[in-house]
């Protein structure tokens, strides 16, 4: 066996260790929870990703007279915002967001089951994986992050024919369409989707990313906005809600 060894600090820097925040995720979350104890309990359960505790907290709040549909915004989304804010700050990692999003969705379904009212989302987004491509973990992450940020997601799944994408956009009238692909050969379907949307007069922003997809390619079609990371998807949606045009979105999110 080698007798060679080194002092690694001479040749590399563990920047993640160097820059790690002193505060634990739990401490950081505690500073962001709502003050109302009923809401706080639900928010903590969301942060912990504990579905059963979320439902228990909702039951208590409803028993105390809270409106089930109002609880979606006042407790579930507040708890989820704690999670997404800490994710954006780099304090917690993606699996925590996924588990919290699972718990939040269970909570939303429970609230809906307790009321005749229909909740109003921030907006609707249609998500799909390119025709010919079955690699869908990127789309799964995008959909979860969008839901975690309060958007209603219409998930068309993977290997989605162009016709089906166009039909869904016509039917759902989303504020944004997302497309993910792993392979260079399948991403060409995005161009076809773009052309068919334009033909139909549907000028919906079309956020694309994943695997071999790159900014140069997405820049070649009018509706395309390149998302380098899954976490860009809710940020793009937020900008659309705030009134950004497609050209402004390209300007902001095309970083290279």
């Amino acid at each position: 066996m080698t007798s060679l060894d080194i002092d690694p600090s001479d040749i590399l820097v563990r920047y993640n260790v160097k820059l790690e925040k002193a505060m634990t995720p739990e401490d950081a979350a505690a500073e962001l929870y709502p003050k109302d104890e009923l809401y706080r309990q639900i928010a903590v359960a969301i942060f912990d990703g504990e579905e059963d505790d979320v439902i228990e907290g909702l039951e208590k709040a409803i028993a105390a007279g809270k409106n089930p549909i109002a609880l979606i915004d006042d407790a579930l989304m507040v708890g989820m915002k704690v999670v997404t804010d800490l994710y954006d700050q780099g304090t917690i990692f993606l699996p925590n967001v996924m588990m919290s999003a699972d718990a939040m969705l269970d909570g939303i379904e429970f609230c809906k089951s307790q009321s005749d009212e229909t909740p109003v989302s921030k907006g609707k987004v249609v998500c799909h994986v390119a025709e010919g491509d079955v690699h869908d973990i990127g789309k799964t992450i995008v959909a979860a992050l969008l839901r975690a940020n309060g958007y209603e997601v219409v998930d068309l799944g993977r290997d989605v024919p162009v016709d089906e994408v166009i039909a869904a956009v016509k039917a759902e009238k989303p504020l944004m369409l997302t497309g993910t692909a792993l392979m260079t050969t399948t991403m060409y379907a995005f161009k076809a989707v773009n052309d068919r949307l334009l033909e139909a007069g549907l000028n919906v922003p079309f956020a694309c990313g994943g695997g071999a997809v790159n900014q140069d390619f997405v820049s070649t079609y009018e509706l395309g906005i390149y998302g380098e990371e899954a976490a860009d998807a809710p940020k793009i949606a937020d900008k659309i809600l705030a009134g950004s045009s497609i050209s402004a979105l390209k300007e902001e999110f095309h970083k290279h």
Partner: peptide
């Protein structure tokens, strides 16, 4: 490799 790619670089926050 899916795990490695989700993990990404030192500063990425998607997987330990």
């Amino acid at each position: 490799n899916t795990a490695m790619f989700i993990g990404g670089g030192l500063l990425d926050k998607n997987l330990a």
